[in-house]
Each structure stands twice: as structure tokens, then as C-alpha cells.
Design a protein around this nucleic acid. Structure first.
Lengths: 234, 234
DNA sequence: CATTCGGATTGACTCAAGTCAAACCCACCG
DNA sequence: CGGTGGGTTTGACTTGAGTCAATCCGAATG
């Protein structure tokens, strides 16, 4: 599943770390990078394996997760086309992947030698600034996620998630979930049943409704209130 | 509360980011850094304020936390002497502090202009490698923390925490908690009552006991088993 | 078009963590 | 040495998320 064919320049430049690089460096990347094609459910890497390649998602969808002692999976991130797998970057030899990564659907990943990325960072000021920025942003995301999980009320978590997605989609009343509810539930560390009941509750109160993966936000203000603990309908 | 007195070189080199720097650069840091002294409960920075200074803990203890909608605090990290506040670093202007920071006890913080840190990273290969490494490690820590919180069983969280502390203290049977149980509970996103009951449970089963802040681990193997979901005493 | 399989939903039940209130204990201070 | 206050522990009670089981539905398949 390894293709040597040259990756188009725009495909490389879509990732922030590579955006500001000169043509010469981008061309170096094109010549040394691979495309790794994954079938659905194929494993890209496992938690605690040494980092040998760094990945960037060109198409499809992958999940980054850990296994619980019960054997089920807790999803930390779902990455789609255009997302950098920031958890797979290592400037120094010796880092271990903190998570498992498996394809949800057939996917293509840009695969780059982490040492080559390190090399680029040492050569380009812009590249290293972007890299650090990307890592800092990842830290902020994880703090947000930990905060989400620290609240035990399920409706808070769901409201918070819906509000995030709503804003990410340009505050449009209607949008599609990025993945199945099963995965959303795992991301929120809830049982699918609990997520389902929460959405029903929101539907009955006219706050939001869902048909399959299509979500309709009727009253974003009330979601806001639930997140901030004001609304009693929580 | 601003002292201009020169910080000793060893004090600066104790932080990994600065460890491998040449004397000339360390001396630049000494001349441009301040010491910020904090009284107990004094605020160092607030969540969402723009990052104006980056901090490194020289003495005392500070907590990094967010406020919940109920007004209580959820602690993410407790930093003591020798710890870098990695969440206060920003290579680019525009980052906001992701957390609040307040002194638990009287503390002294090394305060450095983030632009100066950026400058050092651009000049020293070692420094930027250490910085990226520090951020990657912070990401791994936060993933671990999110995993901890995703498990709803309180005894898992407590066992996992005790095991971590046990190992961090060189696997000695007896050690002191770094902070009051109230803060430990907040870190684990548990109520103090729940933590207390958990410890009682461990005491009754001969797994571990605590007198004030002193912890005695009697059977580390069983903690291990609880964390991995084997032990029924969970 | 019928079949099938995985995801989604619903209901009934259980139980562990949260909550409230009270007692306790240690450290600090006058 | 007694008093005060914050952290800690304990008990009684409530509640909401997990669990198990059954059903429903939709998309993919032949």
C-alpha cells in the first residue's frame, strides 16, 4: 500500500507546517514523502510504538484512540482530509505514539520521516514557528477536552459538543456530524445510549434535533445556557 | 513584587529548555528575566488573557486550573520548584493562556518575555529541540489525563494517581502527597468526599493507607490490577 | 426486492458518585 | 492552653449515567 507517486504541491501546502515553505523545500518533501493508503479498519500505528513516520491526512478519516481496560475504545480525535496528526510528530528520536490510529474509512495519508520534519524546522524559521504553534494549539485542545470530561453531567458535554460543531460550521442552523454517533459518544466518553437520550431530551425541549447525521440547532442560545449552567433544561 | 536581582545560573539551567545553552545566552537571560514573588492565593495570570510573560517556578507551589460553571475549580496541574509552566509559552504573539494560575503558597517565579524565548529558540538548535520536546511531553501528559477522566470509576482514578506518585517517588512504599487532598480530588475531578471514601476503601483492603499527607503503599501490585481492571476490589 | 448487519433507539433496572449536613481533627494563633 | 478555621472524614439520601436486553432502522449487498 505504498505509492511513490509525487504528491501535488497544493496537497502539501494545505498543512500549516508546510504552508510558508519555499518551492525548493516543498519539492524535497515531495520526493521523500510517501502516500500510505489504508483500507477501512486498517491500523496506521499503535500506542507506545516508537514514532517512525509522521502523518498528514490527505483523504478519508482516521480515529486516534486508546483502549480501556474493558476493551472498548476511547476516541481522542477524529482526523479527516487536511488534518495533521500532530501526535505523530517527534523532533527527537525516542518519542512513542501516545495513541492508536486506525482508519475509519478508506484513507490516504501523507507519510514523512520525522527526522526530515526536524530538519525542515531547523532550516526554516517559519516552519518551526508553525510547528510550535500547532503543538501549542493541540495542548489547548486537550485542555478543553479534559475540561469537558471533568464535567459529569452528560447534557453539558453534548451541548458543548454541539455548540462547537455549530460554530465550526459557520454558525449554520443545520450541519452534518463528522462521524457516526457511536464515535461521537466515545469522544465524549459517554455510552451511545446516553448520547441518544440526551439528543431526545434536546429534541423534546425544542433545542436541537437530529435525523441520522444531520443536526438542526433550533436554539443555540439555550445550548449556550446549558454549557454555562444557567438553563434548567440541563 | 518585582525583583531585578540576578537569578543564579544554576537556577536557570535547572529548566530543560535552558539546560544546554551556552554561558553567553544564559547570561542574557539573567539580565532580562525578572523574579515575580507571589503571596499565597495571589493570581499570576488568568485564562484567556494574552500571553505576556512565560513563567518557571523557582520556589513554592502554584495551581493551574479552570473554573466550572458551578464556580468551583478544576485543577489541571500543580507546579512546584523546578517546573516550567509550559502552558505559558508562546512562540507567536496572540496565544491566550489556556488556564488560570494562582499561588497555593508563597512562591517565586522566573518571569521571561516570550519573545525572548522565541529568539533563543531561533538561535539555538538545542533550545528549540528541548522546547518542542517539552511541548510534546505536555501533550502526552494531557492525553493521559484525559484518559484518566474518561474512566468513570473513582477507584480507577485514585489507584492510577497513587501508582503514578509511587513511581515518581522511586517506588518507595512511603511518600508525601504534593498537595492537600482537596487539590488532589480536584485534579482527579472527584469530590473530596469521594476521594476520602476511596482511600478508606483501600485502607480496609490493605492496599494503601494515608495519615495526613503521608501515603503508605502496601500492595502496589493490587493498585496495578485495579488500574488494569483485573482486581475486583475496585 | 429481500436479506443482513451494524448502528440507533427505547425501556427497566442497578448502583456508584454527588450532595447535604454534621462531626472531627489538626495546625495555627492569640 | 483554649479557640478558631480549613481541610477531612463519615453518614444518609438522591439522582443520573451505566448496563442489559429488545427493538427499530438504514445502508449496503446479493
Amino acid at each position: 500500500m505504498l505509492e511513490r507517486k509525487m504528491v501535488p504541491v497544493e496537497q502539501i501546502r494545505q498543512f500549516r507546517i508546510f504552508r510558508d515553505l519555499g518551492d525548493a523545500i516543498v519539492d524535497e518533501i515531495r520526493r521523500s514523502a510517501w502516500i500510505k493508503s489504508l483500507a477501512a479498519d486498517e491500523v496506521l500505528f499503535r500506542q507506545n510504538d516508537p514514532v517512525r513516520r509522521s502523518y498528514f491526512c490527505l483523504s478519508g478519516q482516521v480515529k486516534l484512540f486508546r483502549l480501556t481496560r474493558a476493551g472498548s475504545e476511547k476516541i481522542f480525535t477524529i482526523a479527516s482530509s487536511g488534518d495533521s496528526l500532530r501526535d505523530s510528530i517527534s523532533l527527537m528520536a525516542g518519542r512513542l505514539y501516545p495513541l492508536n490510529c486506525t482508519a475509519i474509512s478508506a484513507s490516504e495519508m501523507l507519510s514523512i520521516d520525522p527526522e526530515f520534519i526536524a530538519d525542515i524546522c531547523h532550516r526554516s524559521r517559519d516552519a518551526r514557528t508553525s510547528l510550535v504553534e500547532a503543538l501549542e494549539q493541540r495542548i489547548d485542545e486537550l485542555v478543553d477536552h479534559a475540561e469537558l470530561l471533568s464535567v459529569d453531567k452528560a447534557s453539558f458535554r453534548v451541548a458543548s459538543y454541539l455548540l462547537n460543531e455549530y460554530r465550526r460550521n459557520g454558525s449554520k442552523r443545520s450541519f452534518r456530524l463528522g462521524s457516526s454517533k457511536k464515535y461521537v459518544a466515545s469522544y465524549l466518553s459517554l455510552q451511545p445510549e446516553t448520547l441518544s437520550r440526551c439528543l431526545r431530551h434536546f429534541r423534546q425541549n425544542g433545542i436541537a434535533s437530529s435525523v441520522n447525521r444531520r443536526i438542526e440547532i433550533h436554539e443555540p442560545e439555550r445550548l449556550e445556557q446549558i454549557v454555562h449552567g444557567v438553563d434548567a433544561a440541563a
